[in-house]
Write a protein that binds this DNA or RNA. Structure first.
Lengths: 200, 200, 200, 200
DNA sequence: CATGAATGAGAGTTCATTCAT
DNA sequence: TATGAATGAACTCTCATTCAT
């Protein structure tokens, strides 16, 4: 229970950081602004994290693990899993909550070339997500849902890159139709082509 | 002549900003760091620009117009133009110079949700680039290079989104094979399919 | 038994303070650094001492009483006692342990003009030590070891001041030959002159 | 003239530091307290000195050079120079101004074992002062004022150490009779013995 | 135009101290 | 007794901006 309380404070800090990051953006994120979103005192932030960078590195882990858990929770046959994956990370991104999360991630990513620890954590997560998608394709081939000549890795890369690009453009330009439009095009020009047509 | 000198100083400031941004990143970009890359004094930056935000807004224009000029300079038949476009903005991005430019753009994009002027400038540029690509496809259809059932807008969106996503991931994770891999997949799964096969 | 345990904790705190002071110096001595040298928790320091100043005042008493006990333990005829006194507080100061102790004392002394309680404790101890030395001289005169015209107070002052100065300079400049050189000069120019020459 | 103004600010900072150090002591000396003694803004302190340590290192130089200039200004025959030296640095130290200066120096000295740059500067100055005194003795021997068997280095060490010790004890205990008493003893037991007696 | 000293608000961080357990 | 989370004030230092020259 004592242990829980410590974790609780830790979690509260992560949530406060999330709110502050969404509201102000990475470039103008300060310990004061995090503290403003935090019920307890500013000094306590430094009691739990040695420095701002430590806190933000922990925050990346927090964001990524939420992200990874979300992906891992997808169930069903391969083609439906792929649909759900795309739906969840592109289409549903249009809710305010998801937009804020992806924007926070984008800001941390833009910062990663200047921060080794950020980059390492992001790279690890990227590999995990890519493997998940490639495995969905691979399973689909095995089960005869996707065509045997589809290359799991290549398709996964294309799906992720286009969805990611759509989301980034949608977020940064503020055009909410972007992800939907790209998702439609992705189905029409890529996914439909690798689906095994049952009525032929 | 006075006007020319002013422009020259203006250009020097833009270049200094570019160097400072590439070296330090947006989040830790300060007037002092820009001044360090600038031959003249720090005070002069404020003589030419009322505030840091003014300077950075001008800098976005500077970056985007370079970008747009680059695109506009592509010549040749539609399919070659598309090849060149992809090559220039994805594959060639692996040179240090282009990486730095795209990283600078990414940082400014990540900041745009917190800055209306940034967002407006970026949105305008995005529309221009998307129209250019869509027009290439459209011309290709007219000239019989691309299949008649290809939708210029949809293909342009897909090409841009996937390339952009690949570049972003490549930059932020530091994996230089990303853009190449996605570009290969884009050709295999999308572009080859809309090309009119001359040998059939 | 409870009392003993309290005393034991008290002693542990004094020792921890000593180690922290030797390692970091007075100016950057914090309760945290004392706590780091202490087996138990930081909060306990405040349980035993109302404030940092209370703790340090107690620490001065602890240091000075060690010092005074050391002096009181010197035995033998007056000239040998004087030799031992000089040897113990000047020459032997070159061991790391004694250097650290004297440095700690010097730091507390340098702070005393800003802290009445520090000053009072140090003044009391100074009087004790000076009286001890003067008494050694006085006893020597009575026993015919030192010349009758030697003034106990004046000689004691000179011995203490020169030794103290040598130690301070040795410690602060890091020149370990200082105390030895001054002690040699002190014998040659002062002590030898007041010794009754037995072979004349 | 412009150059002078810059130096002027530098000098003002040194003087402000001196006042703050005398008033509060090294251990509780803050940039804010220095700023409080300074006509201009706190930020300016950091404009002129990269860090607090830089400022204090510059301050040591400032104190020591004042000290060295004072010594160098002593004129007259060797025995009078020695008298003046002792008078100036021991007896006259009882004015508030000199007490403050010597206390400031003592605090910086007590800190020097924890700060290499402090120590180096202090060691250099110590050598200068010791050489000056040894040279006074040496000149006195050459001119027949001091006995030929007096050892300049040894006497200089003893004079400096005893005076320094007397001053330190006087300052830290707050007993103003200390330097006078030790100076009297120094004359009686050391200096009178090495003076060539003209009336014998 | 151009400089660089100067400002003042606010950044990240440290610290003695308190308090619930 | 003993812990360690929590506090709030104060710390060093940075920054965009101003201004006299």
């Amino acid at each position: 229970m004592e242990n829980d309380e410590q974790s609780e404070t830790h979690a509260e800090i992560m949530e406060a950081t999330y709110r502050a990051l969404c509201e102000h953006g990475y470039a103008s994120l300060t310990m004061q602004k995090i503290s403003d979103e935090f019920e307890k005192s500013k000094g306590l932030l430094h009691y739990h994290f040695d420095s701002k960078e430590e806190l933000l590195t922990a925050f990346i882990d927090y964001l990524l693990s939420e992200f990874e858990q979300d992906i891992a929770s997808i169930e069903g046959p391969p083609d439906e899993k792929l649909d759900e994956f795309i739906k969840r990370f592109v289409v549903v991104s249009n809710t305010d909550d998801r937009k804020a999360l992806h924007l926070a991630l984008l800001e941390l990513r833009a910062q990663s070339p200047f921060n080794d620890r950020f980059r390492d954590h992001l790279a690890r997560s990227d590999t995990i997500v890519r493997d998940v998608v490639a495995e969905i394709i691979d399973d689909g081939i095995t089960q005869g849902v996707f065509r045997a000549d589809a290359e799991p890795e290549a398709v996964a890369q294309l799906v992720l890159a286009s969805m990611d690009g759509a989301r980034t453009r949608g977020l940064t330009i503020g055009d909410e139709t972007y992800p939907d439009a790209v998702s439609d095009a992705l189905y029409e020009y890529v996914i439909d082509d690798i689906l095994v047509k049952t009525n032929e």
